[in-house]
Amino acid sequence: MSRSRYTPRERRHRAIHAFIDRDCPVSALTPGTKVPVKSCPQCDIKSPDYVRHHGIKDCPHKPDMCHGFHAATLDHDKAQSWIDRYPDLNFAISTGPAGLVIVDLDTNKNGAPVPDKYANIPGVKDGYDVWSLALERYGARHPTDTMQVSTPNGGLHIWHSLPPGVVVNKSEGAFGWLVDIRSTNSYIIGPTSVTKDGEYRRLGDVTEPTVAPDWLLHHLEHTGHKPKPPARPRPRIIRQRSDQDDREYRGKTVQDLAHELATAQETERHAVLVRVTAAAAYLVHRGLCDEAEMRDAMYDAGRDAQRTDYEIHKAIESALSYTAGRAA
């Protein structure tokens, strides 16, 4: 059926339901943006009406649009209720539950200098060129048999599905300059979504992602995106805490620490990130919260504090390693 029979808004509504039919959970984005719909006051950690909770699983109200891509749904009725309230909403796909890995190529739209790593390689000027270097390394060609989406700023999303049992992390590893990997704990903007810069458009006639090729999975392991084998369980009992430690952290929960980070002054955010992740690591090792709960809280609060995923990841890993070492 011809696209021209539908308005841009209608095509977006149809696309939302089509992705649900493909078992790709969708979440709501603020109309005209790439940003999740703002959480309600009960779920906004910066709001005075915030109700302490850990996420979508213990949300103080019936789960709806709060908590971003964690609230992604396969329920047609729920998605339609979002459309009814926000007819011009954009949408995203939660890539982990959908079993997807997306290679996100960016242009150098801000004219940043080429990193030293690539300075002596002729022709490298953006993420497309870094992707080409990876293709050349493995004797591969740019795929033409899988779904691809152009972005309004000239970037490209290359969609692949993951083989059963394969997990790819987003916030760990580094593919290369201006190349991002979106899979576990991430989302991708859905085609037909529109920002002030234009529309996310599916390219060509291929409408389905093919299975990620072996060379790409191998490369993602090399770049640190594939999870390492589980580490030995860290001991829960640690050294005797000092009186100063107890005065500073007594009675605090991981959500208290997350709130401290999310509301930190701009000039203090890195220092607060280091401090609260260290305190949260002690909570984990004392058995007062789960490591997964701690990680989710620190990532959410760190992003609110405009910290990069890499910076948050390094702070968490350093804190957990330090507390484990002191427990040994």
Score class of each variant (00 low, 15 high):
Pro230Cys: 14
Pro63Lys: 05
Val168Thr: 09
His76Cys: 12
Asp256Pro: 00
Val167Leu: 13
Pro63Met: 14
Glu266Met: 11
Gly325His: 15
Pro164Gln: 11
Lys57Gln: 04
Ile316His: 07
Pro164Leu: 08
Ile188Ala: 14
Val101Lys: 10
Pro163Ser: 04
Pro143Asp: 08
Asn90Val: 00
Thr263Ile: 07
Arg241Asn: 09
His70Tyr: 15
Ile181Ser: 08
Ile56His: 11
Asp88Asn: 11
Leu178Lys: 06
Thr223Val: 08
Asp300Val: 11
Lys57Ser: 13
Thr184Phe: 11
Gly173His: 12
Asp246Lys: 09
Arg137Gln: 14
Ile237Thr: 15
Glu317Gly: 06
Asp84Thr: 02
Glu172Leu: 07
Arg295Pro: 08
Ile158Lys: 07
Asp104Val: 00
His142Pro: 05
His225Lys: 04
Gln244Ile: 06
His225Trp: 03
Arg85Pro: 02
Gly224Trp: 06
Gln306Asp: 15
Gly173Lys: 12
Ile121Leu: 10
Ser186Glu: 08
Ile56Asn: 12
Asp197Val: 00
Lys78Leu: 14
Phe175Thr: 01
Asp145Pro: 00
Arg247Trp: 14
Thr73Asp: 07
Gly68Asn: 04
Gly251Thr: 03
Asn110Tyr: 05
Ala327Phe: 01
Ser39Tyr: 09
Tyr310Val: 14
Pro48Thr: 02
Glu208Ala: 10
Ile121Ala: 08
Trp159Glu: 05
Pro87Cys: 03
Thr263Tyr: 09
Cys24Met: 14
Arg236Ile: 04
Asp214His: 06
Ser2Thr: 11
Tyr50Gln: 01
Lys228Ala: 07
Arg234Ala: 14
Trp177Phe: 05
Pro230Phe: 07
Glu10Asp: 12
Thr207Cys: 04
His313Gln: 14
Lys78Ser: 02
Ser27Trp: 15
Thr195Ile: 07
Glu260Cys: 01
Pro230Leu: 15
Ile312Phe: 08
Gly190Thr: 04
Cys289Leu: 04
Tyr50Phe: 10
Leu320Ser: 03
Ser186Arg: 10
Leu178Cys: 01
Asp309Tyr: 07
Leu89Tyr: 04
Ile158Leu: 11
Arg5Asp: 08
His76Ile: 12
Thr308Asp: 12
Lys170His: 15
Thr323Asp: 12
Ile20Val: 02
Ala15Asp: 03
Arg286Trp: 14
